Amino acid sequence: MSKNILIISSDNTGHGHKSITESLCEKVDDHNVNIHVVDGFSLGGEVLLSVGKSYGPITRTAEGLWKLVWNLSSLKPAVVNQMIETVIKNNFLKLLEEFKPDIILSVHPNFNGSILNILEKQGIKIPFVTLIADLVSIYPLWADKRADYIISPTVEAKEKCIEYGVPSENIKVLGFPVRSRFYRKAANPKKTYTPNEGKPLKCLIMSGGEGVGNMKNIAENLLDHFDCNVKIVAGRNVKMKKKLENALGKYGQKVEVYGFTKDIQDLMFSSDIAFTRGSPNVMFEAFASNTPIIITGALPGQEEGNPGFAEKFNLGIICKSTQDIEPTIEELLANNAEKLNNIIESQQNFINEHAAEDIVQFLLNLDDPVYQTSVSLSYN
């Protein structure tokens, strides 16, 4: 008998929620499953959809405002839940009637408590599962203890959920799901890096789907001090792409600037080092592709703990100032690139290639109490 899984995601608040959803959808081909994905913001009509679309402009140009929004939402989660409940209720109930889901999975914090409110008030009994899309500094909105289960990517996020009052037994740590194309195939394994005079260092600079960060200064520091080639991904930030092309044109073919690309995995595979902000999705895609990362910043709020997480497990290093880029690279390449190669090895040992499949299997076995109590942790 087939199962219907309704996934509440988001198309406009960065690209992470969408990427996570795609990674799960890849794994249902071998199962008798129907998946319907909906942008939660679309359930609230144009008003709520415009709120979702404001994420990009705010995070690109007003990080202080984003921090204020994040902090206020964290202080009053019940108010946020009630507001969203009011605007999505009718469309959500209509969606339930049309799709008749057996399971609801939410991968966006803004729709956990609001949907649980609706289900509770309407007396509707459908298993509800939250999949946390952040690593360490999670919203209270992720941790609604009424959810049947919360799937956490890390032990750190699980511990935060417990602080918010979620019973430990209702939280399953199954890793962070990454789309399959980011994992290197046997024909393209990651090799240890060996410094070679005359062989330029291949650097990738990216900053998540919204293209935030001081990518120009990073590129200039690299190109002025090292024999390197630099590829930059400006994401959806069209203005930044144009500015970068104009400012870095003097370096000629040593620099390539890309907009939003669906082939980011190929850029990672061909790079020795990637510079990125602390976006959880971008970080884990780099880990999966076995590309050492240098983290140059993080959005206030949900990304603040991510750089420390990467350093804790030796998956990358932090570089807080562009002035520190030169000594940071020199440190990585010293002693025949010992530190860089240690990061490569740590990523190989850390990443769980089966996280997406583990999550799908967990959802499909929700009605099996024996499986739920015996499911093992895939992340340590």
Rank of each mutant, 00 (worst) to 15 (best):
S2E: 13
S2G: 06
K3L: 01
L6S: 00
I7A: 09
D11W: 14
K18H: 14
S23N: 00
C25W: 08
C25Y: 03
K27F: 11
H31N: 03
I35C: 03
I35K: 03
V38Y: 02
S42W: 10
G45P: 01
G52I: 01
G56M: 15
G56D: 12
P57K: 02
I58M: 06
E63R: 15
E63Q: 15
G64E: 02
W66A: 12
W66V: 15
S73T: 10
S74C: 13
L75P: 04
K76E: 12
A78I: 14
V87T: 12
K89R: 07
N91F: 10
F99C: 00
K100I: 07
P101R: 09
F111S: 04
N112W: 13
G113V: 00
S114N: 05
S114F: 01
L116D: 05
E120K: 14
I124H: 05
I126F: 12
A133L: 03
D134E: 06
R146H: 06
Y149H: 13
I150D: 13
V155W: 14
V155N: 14
A157V: 08
A157W: 10
E159F: 12
I162A: 02
V166G: 07
S168V: 13
E169K: 03
G175Y: 04
V178E: 11
S180A: 07
F182S: 02
A187M: 11
P189W: 09
P189Y: 08
K190F: 04
K190D: 07
T194A: 15
T194N: 15
E197V: 14
K199H: 10
K199G: 06
P200D: 04
L201E: 02
K202F: 04
I205K: 05
M206T: 14
G208S: 09
G211K: 04
M215N: 09
M215L: 04
I218Q: 08
E220Q: 11
D224K: 13
D224C: 08
F226S: 11
C228F: 00
N229F: 05
V230M: 03
N237A: 11
K241Q: 13
K242H: 10
K243Q: 11
K243D: 13
E245M: 02
K250A: 07
G252F: 00
G252E: 03
K254H: 04
V255K: 01
E256Y: 05
E256S: 11
D266T: 09
F269D: 02
S270G: 11
S271G: 02
S271R: 01
A274E: 01
G278W: 11
P280S: 06
N281S: 10
F287L: 14
F287R: 12
F287M: 13
S289T: 02
P292Q: 00
I294T: 00
L299Y: 15
P300W: 12
Q302E: 11
Q302A: 09
Q302Y: 11
E303P: 03
N306T: 08
P307I: 14
P307S: 08
K312R: 07
L315F: 02
L315M: 01
Q323M: 15
D324W: 10
I325Y: 10
I325Q: 00
P327A: 04
P327N: 03
P327W: 10
T328P: 08
I329V: 05
E330F: 10
L333G: 04
L333S: 00
A334C: 06
N335S: 06
K339M: 13
Q348D: 09
I351E: 06
E353V: 12
V360E: 12
L363A: 06
L363W: 09
N365I: 13
P369N: 11
V375I: 12
S378C: 08
S378A: 15
S378R: 15
N380S: 14
